[in-house]
Nucleic acid binder design. Structure first.
Lengths: 69, 69
DNA sequence: TCTGAATGTATAGCGCGCTTTACATTTTGA
DNA sequence: TCAAAATGTAAAGCGCGCTATACATTCAGA
């Protein structure tokens, strides 16, 4: 899954650490999400969207390809 | 986490099995989501929202309480 | 009324999201 | 230029989302 996390984060001049703290996860989690290593949980996706003031659908890009869970 | 899955499903007169098949999970998964036993993954949440033609935020209700992952 | 459809409960197992720790590399700015 | 800040990689471990299977209960309609 692709995300616009890095894009939004840089736009607002926020570091990975600051974002991690804001949504209460480790920096590793943010790195992994930004680099597409795995998908966020629904709750984390919600927290990140809320932090940036956008919807989940605005940040997380769902490939119709990878529709196999 | 609360969801409106059951509500939307009954509104449209669809069985748990039909919904499960439509989003490619087992009936157990639908039951567990409807009964609040666990949270959907982000991808499954997306598929269900798409199936019903609504947004993730329309179906999944985030308690600000349970903000602890 | 009674059968089949729909919903629910239980449980073992697998893979992934997230943590933790430690260290390496790249970027920034005084 | 060079130290500190920011970003990245690696790897082991835990809990939860989902599967699979089997069986119980509730509900609808001929």
């Amino acid at each position: 899954m692709q995300t616009k996390i890095q894009e939004l984060r840089k736009e607002r001049k926020i570091t990975q650490s600051e974002l991690a703290d804001a949504v209460n996860v480790t920096r590793q989690t943010i790195i992994s999400l930004e680099n597409g290593r795995y998908n966020a949980s629904l709750i984390l996706a919600h927290k990140i969207a809320q932090f940036f003031g956008v919807t989940i659908e605005d940040i997380f890009i769902f490939n119709e390809e990878e529709e196999n869970l």
